[in-house]
């Protein structure tokens, strides 16, 4: 019991990062109705971009972060233009499968470009752990949580209050109506992919700082599917709450049962949620239209 609180706290911190990853799924799903199975690997690319700029090119970390964001945005926009745009109007099953293919390409490409080995990202955060009372939270996890939280807030503000954010929400609500009101729907799709790639890049840097960097990092994206479904595919508050819940559950199972259990628990949650409440905590139950 003495470790329970500490483990929980670390789990919640990791959960904040999951929420940020989940946000990327939700942004793309809300706007384009696609579950993007390549999201985890886009995050992994973000981490490698940062590694390239900060470690390989030796740039100052702040500059490296900016360049990483630029590169990731370009990646997101490029994917949307080259892979998704030609499939507009095709059955959803094709679009979803194309993201599966994309995930394979990105995973292979990362191994080819950066080798399959493990790397450490240059540290951004202070070395000293965060101490709350008698509990230690590892520095990278704690500061990572704060960064994720800040990033989520920024995206929420963007989504809620900017002109393009409103247009994106309109697209999410009703594509045809939005289009007839003068919203450029394909441009909104591109913007959703860019936002998703940006959030993924930040998540990638944080995750890469907490663990090591290697091409399998993208698999985290698959565990985060549990977060997305638990929260409700189209709900941002849902993603945040579910991120915390899954992070916490993972930490507890990892601590009490071991690593293998920790890795599988999100998928158990995923399948249970699909069976009992498929639209998640806050998602909209899909209305059948004839």
């Amino acid at each position: 019991m003495e470790y329970f609180l500490e483990v929980s706290l670390v789990g919640l911190a990791v959960g904040g990062v999951y929420a940020l990853i989940a946000l990327g799924y939700v942004l793309v799903y809300k706007t384009t109705r696609v579950v993007n199975f390549a999201h985890g690997n886009i995050m992994m690319f973000g981490a490698y971009f940062f590694y390239t700029f900060a470690a390989l090119l030796g740039l100052h970390w702040a500059l490296a972060v900016v360049l990483t964001l630029v590169a990731s945005a370009a990646l997101g926009a490029g994917i949307e233009r080259v892979v998704l745009r030609p499939l507009l109007g095709r059955p959803a099953i094709s679009v979803v499968m194309v993201t599966v293919g994309l995930a394979a390409v990105l995973h292979g490409a990362a191994q080819m470009i950066w080798t399959p080995g493990d790397f450490f990202l240059p540290s951004i955060f202070p070395d000293a752990p965060i101490i709350i009372g008698e509990m230690f939270i590892p520095s990278n996890t704690g500061y990572g949580f704060l960064v994720a939280l800040a990033a989520i807030l920024i995206f929420l503000v963007l989504f809620r209050f900017t002109r393009s954010g409103v247009a994106m929400r309109a697209t999410a609500a009703d594509q045809v109506a939005a289009s007839s009101m003068g919203v450029n729907v394909p441009a909104m799709f591109r913007l959703a992919w860019i936002y998703a790639a940006l959030s993924a890049a930040i998540a990638g840097i944080v995750v890469g700082s907490i663990t090591t960097l290697n091409p399998t990092m993208g698999l985290i994206g698959l565990s985060v599917l549990a977060v997305v479904i638990l929260g409700g595919l189209d709900s941002i508050p849902g993603a945040i709450l579910a991120g915390l819940i899954i992070g916490w559950l993972e930490a507890l199972t990892g601590f009490y049962l071991g690593g293998a259990y920790k890795d599988v628990i999100p998928f158990v949650v995923l399948i249970v949620i699909l069976m009992i409440r498929p639209y998640g905590l806050f998602g909209t139950p899909e209305i059948e239209r004839l």
Partner: peptide
């Protein structure tokens, strides 16, 4: 070999779907 395989599989999926 292994990454090349994955890239080719992925490109085949994407290419054929498009």
């Amino acid at each position: 070999l292994s990454p090349a395989r994955e890239i080719v599989f992925g490109l085949l999926i994407v290419g054929f779907l498009i």
